[in-house]
């Protein structure tokens, strides 16, 4: 009985962690190339989810509606990179961060303007009634949560394979590692970085419709997730997709177990647990668990 409870809490942690990891994956995609921490990533995902919702509400089959949102996400990513990020130049880290904060507010306001402030319910891609779960060792694995986890794992495996084994991936990694050398060997660095934003926009737009059935669709649905995602990416290493996933799951599981077993923390101090993990990682290993340490030979 004790053990079953523990497993249930573990699975809850994994479910939350998968969401953090998913969004962190999108953060990693832009960070690798442009070195931009896109704080507006969650808002971009949110507005794309509204697009999917509108499509679905107008009779488009749900999978196609989600695909529509994903396409909008990718295109928006490219547009943002081209018009707001690239003109600032390669080393304008703080300006880029400020632009992202501005973008956060702008997208949030735009979504409120178009779709209003009321939360909407979002249809689930798989049956999501109370009895739609697989029981494993007494723990309920809900279909919807399994879908998120599976999509996440497939995505990270695909990204890893692309980065590791394709010419395009090699170009991306070269551009991230040393932009000047990369352009000397023929990599079109700006174009490669733009693809990072396309990927990020699409990944975020895929996450939104997967979580919206349980969080409900609203302009504030990503507010806390983006903080968790930043923490996950920091823990895992901002330039490592696999690190982002490990970081996300680690934070999700740890905060849930701590909140369950340490009396005074409970649900109200959950986010604090994530921030403590973040702080410890920053002090002990600033580049994250799997991130690239900045080394320079002089």
């Amino acid at each position: 009985m004790e053990f079953e409870l523990f497993l249930t809490r573990l699975v809850q942690g994994i479910n939350n962690g998968a969401i953090y990891a998913f969004l962190a994956l999108a953060l990693v995609c832009t960070y690798r190339g442009s070195k931009a921490l896109n704080l507006a990533q969650g808002e971009l995902a949110m507005i794309c989810t509204f697009v999917s919702w509108s499509l679905a509400a107008n009779g488009v089959p749900l999978p196609l509606a989600i695909l529509g949102g994903v396409v909008v996400g990718g295109l928006s990513g490219a547009a943002i990179e081209r018009t707001l990020i690239r003109p600032l130049g390669r080393d304008a880290h703080y300006s880029v961060l400020l632009v992202c904060v501005g973008l956060f507010l702008a997208i949030n306001a735009l979504a409120g303007f178009i779709w209003g402030g009321d939360p909407q319910s979002f249809p689930a891609v798989v049956p999501d009634a109370p009895d739609d779960f697989v029981p494993v060792m007494g723990v309920r694995l809900r279909y919807q949560q399994l879908v998120i986890l599976v999509v996440l794992l497939v995505l990270v495996a695909a990204l890893y394979a692309v980065f590791r084994y394709t010419r395009f991936g090699l170009s991306m990694r070269a551009a991230a590692s040393n932009p000047d050398s990369a352009s000397l060997v023929g990599v079109r660095v700006n174009r490669v970085n733009a693809w990072g934003w396309v990927l990020a926009g699409a990944v975020g737009a895929l996450l939104g419709p997967l979580i919206a059935p349980s969080t409900t669709l609203s302009t504030s649905m990503f507010f806390t997730f983006i903080i968790y995602a930043c923490a996950a990416a920091t823990v895992g290493g901002f330039d490592s997709p696999i690190g982002a996933v490990i970081g996300g799951l680690f934070i999700g599981v740890t905060e849930n177990l701590v909140a369950s077993y340490v009396g005074f923390i409970g649900d109200s101090l959950k986010l604090t647990v994530a921030l403590v993990i973040l702080l410890v990682v920053l002090m002990v290993k600033p580049s994250g668990l799997l991130g690239t340490r900045e080394v320079e030979r002089v």
């Binding site: 090699l170 170009s171 070269a174 590692s177 050398s181 000397l184 023929g186 990599v187």
Partner: peptide, 19 residues
């Protein structure tokens, strides 16, 4: 030298052939 420090030696060589 402009080495891609976090890529392997072989990957560095392969970047040379990206063009």
């Amino acid at each position: 030298r402009g080495t891609f420090v976090d890529l392997t030696v072989e990957e560095n060589l392969r970047t040379g052939a990206l063009s």
